[in-house]
Design a protein around this nucleic acid. Structure first.
Ligand code: SF4
Ligand code: SF4
Lengths: 147, 147
DNA sequence: GGTATTGTATACTATATTAGTCATAATAGT
DNA sequence: ACTATTATGACTAATATAGTATACAATACC
């Protein structure tokens, strides 16, 4: 039940982006440096977020990336969905047709409950929540939120 | 965030075992057939469960496997821990030392909440719960619970 | 004691996924 | 034109997954 680095790094990237929103568009290079993620990999992570309408990008000089909508409207469940695909622990939870036992399988019911519990946490957390938590956590360091 | 087949099959194996508890010890071969899991793979799955004190095995003719404790005392959280290791979505949740950012990282806090939400479901579900659900689900088929 | 029956342990393998790197193209500003 | 910047796709190394195969050890039954 591990989250891949896509989900981990991608979330950190978005939080970093949200924390530097006033300076938008933000250079991927800067995010890469602050978050210690290679630029090349970050480029891969940002792609699905752009496609998913969470991030807007501007190419060329003075370009960069910015949030495509207010951070209060970006739920972590969306983010993880875009970066990792469905959170369902087992495929049958999303699509009963993948397994002939689906109808009568009670373990499936549990995996579904598990999914819902996870979704409860992720859907109730927005990027703005993360930003607020971060600011609460590092009140002394002014505007420099390196995470 | 997928559960590997170890966790999936292992849980089904235990449920099958619990459903056939009166016939214990149960042949791995029979479980394999009912659950459509290869015997060789099932042998792999049962090993950590024996080591973890959930299953007892009897070798030789008339042998097989049985539950080492009452099904009400077997929590799914234990089972998954034995079969998949920690449920933590990111390693830093269990051991902050793995990442230098742990101290100030708010995404880590979320991953921790996620873990706790998952553990809430798994720790509150016992094998007996699963057995009961299965019996509720298939009341017409008598003792034949193939899952 | 011999033999069939069962689980135990180890080694091996094929495939898929992860976590990247690298080169190149497209685009925007100056 | 030139430069800065993201976008895209090809490629790769390392790891994890999902098994299979083989040999071994213990037990029950005759
Ligand atoms: S056996 Fe049950 S849990 Fe596993 S895939 Fe089939 S329906 Fe889902
Ligand atoms: S960056 Fe945060 S979430 Fe990721 S490993 Fe470090 S502490 Fe954990």
């Amino acid at each position: 039940m591990k989250l891949s680095t896509k989900g981990q790094y991608g979330t950190r990237m978005l939080l970093d982006l949200a924390l530097h929103e006033e300076e938008a568009p933000v250079l991927l290079k800067d995010i890469a440096q602050r978050q210690q993620i290679s630029l090349g990999y970050l480029e891969h992570l940002v792609t699905p977020l752009i496609a998913g309408g969470i991030v807007r990008s501007t190419r060329g000089a003075k370009g960069g990336v910015s949030l495509a909508k207010p951070s209060e409207q970006i739920k972590l469940s969306e983010v993880i969905q875009l970066l990792e695909g469905s959170i369902a622990p087992v495929a049958c939870v999303n699509d009963p047709a993948v397994c002939s036992r689906s109808e009568s399988c009670v373990t499936r019911d549990i995996w579904d409950e598990l999914k819902q519990a996870m979704d409860g946490v992720l859907a109730s957390t927005t990027l703005q929540n993360l930003v607020q938590r971060q600011k609460d956590k590092q009140p002394l360091e002014g505007a420099m939120y390196y995470i």
